[in-house]
């Protein structure tokens, strides 16, 4: 059985305007719309396409977090994942502990490919995929914009600062997705109905042998410094004059 693992993170929706709580204890998440991390949707889409090409047999979606993560896992099942596991915890789980839990799942589920989003849009850490690859002792191809599976290897094109880099990696391996890898499909109503019948198991962190540890304590949260609105000019001449006054032209 060739099984692909796709971790799913529940995050504040892309379109929500983030505000820091007045007491600096966090950002306001009460009552705001929550969604699948957009990069994880791209990861799931890629896994589904690989399966649809006959190169994998099953797509397993895993989320780590509170009971509400079931919503995002149901969406993942509706998109086409075959089954889902929720590792239920109310603790803050840092990327290293997420990677540890995923590593255990990779072993137990004989994963041949783990596809993750390159970063979560809440903490913007961009760590979990690389950490999983390290703990698993397997290759990583991060920031992927093209993935080709060919037997026991994958050729992955990566978006790097210099342009596009292509790597060849032995499977099993970890791939993290960049924006332009694919465009995730829309979920149709019949798929949502079907997803309700797909298996969603709930386990706890202890069953994966991990007790989440807070290695980096969040001391306080601040709003970012704001830029102030500057001047408006009426034409290119005034614009160039303004640049010259600043010594920039």
């Amino acid at each position: 059985m060739k099984r692909i693992l796709v971790p799913i993170k529940r995050v504040v929706d892309y379109n929500v305007r983030i505000r820091v709580k007045p007491d600096g204890s966090g950002v306001i998440t009460d009552g705001v719309k929550m969604s699948i991390n957009p990069f994880d949707e791209i990861a799931l889409e890629e896994a589904l396409r690989i399966k649809e090409k006959g190169l994998a047999d099953e797509v397993l979606a895993v989320s780590i977090g509170p009971a509400d993560c079931q919503q995002q896992l149901r969406t993942a099942l509706a998109m086409g994942a075959d089954r889902a596991i929720l590792v239920q915890t109310d603790a803050v789980v840092e990327p290293l502990d997420v990677a540890r839990m995923l590593r255990t799942i990779c072993d137990r589920e004989s994963i041949f490919l783990a596809i993750l989003g390159k970063q979560a849009i809440d903490d913007d850490c961009s760590q979990t995929g690389q950490m999983l690859a390290a703990l698993w002792g397997r290759p990583q191809a991060t920031f992927a914009s093209k993935v080709e599976i060919d037997g026991a290897v994958a050729r992955v094109t990566r978006e790097v600062d210099a342009g596009l880099e292509t790597l060849e990696i032995d499977l099993p391996a970890v791939i993290t997705t960049d924006l332009r890898l694919n465009e995730p499909r829309y979920v149709k109503l019949p798929d949502i109905m079907k997803a309700k019948k797909k298996p969603l198991d709930t386990v706890d962190t202890a069953s994966l042998g991990v007790t989440p540890v807070e290695r980096l304590k969040a001391v306080k949260f601040d709003p970012p410094p704001q830029r102030t609105k500057g001047i408006m000019v009426k034409d290119a001449q005034e614009l160039v004059d303004a640049l010259r006054r600043k010594g920039l032209a």
Partner: peptide, 18 residues
Amino acid sequence: RFRRPIYASNAIVTVESS
């Protein structure tokens, strides 16, 4: 103790390592 941006730089968090 360090500062880093989160939520697309819409918040800045101060973190303390053990």
